Simulated assay, not measured.
Amino acid sequence: MSDVVKYNEAVTGENKPVIDFLFQEFLQALPTATYKVWHGAPVWFLDDIPIVGYEDHKLGVKVLFWSGKDFSEPGLIGIGKHRAAGITYTDVASIKVDDLRRYLRLSTEIIWDYRSLRPKK
């Protein structure tokens, strides 16, 4: 059993259906991506570059797109100083499936390569 499946099974309460829905959508939209629990949450990778992940939170399930600011999508909120953006889902009914699928497609087309970032000296 993968560590992501174990993570998903450990989620209880109102976020469980959202986690299960997102997992299936991510698998369908990202068939060539690898995934694992990374920094405590499920993350999908293309060529070892993180592109999207989700995390169970008290206020819903947070989805993070590592290059999301570059998607130019009004439904995503910028996070941090780099290129990440995200959205929080409180229940399955709050997920606009067409938007989610577009974000997932964009996550495979617009990829900010964090491996090439070098710390300033």
Rank of each mutant, 00 (worst) to 15 (best):
D70A: 12
T108Y: 01
L117M: 14
Y7D: 11
G80C: 02
E109G: 11
W66D: 02
I87R: 00
D20H: 01
G86Q: 07
K81I: 12
Y114M: 06
N8C: 14
L117F: 15
M1I: 15
P74N: 01
D3I: 15
K69A: 09
L104H: 07
K121T: 15
E73T: 02
V61N: 04
A33Q: 08
F23G: 01
D91I: 07
G60E: 08
L104P: 10
S67N: 10
Y103S: 03
I49L: 07
W44P: 04
K81C: 02
Y7S: 03
L59P: 02
D98N: 10
Y89Q: 00
S2P: 04
L30W: 06
V11K: 02
D56T: 11
G40F: 02
Y103V: 04
P31K: 01
P50S: 01
N8T: 14
S107I: 13
W38T: 10
R118N: 11
V52C: 01
L100H: 00
E9P: 04
Y54Q: 12
D20R: 00
A84N: 05
E9R: 06
G60Q: 09
D20E: 14
A29V: 06
H57N: 07
P50D: 06
L100M: 02
P74T: 00
K62V: 15
D70R: 06
I111P: 15
V37N: 05
M1F: 14
P74E: 01
S116I: 15
R101N: 10
I79E: 12
F65I: 08
L64W: 11
S2H: 07
R83D: 14
K36H: 05
D98I: 07
K62H: 13
Q24L: 11
F26R: 05
F23R: 05
Q28P: 02
I110M: 05
W38C: 07
E14L: 10
D48A: 12
E73V: 06
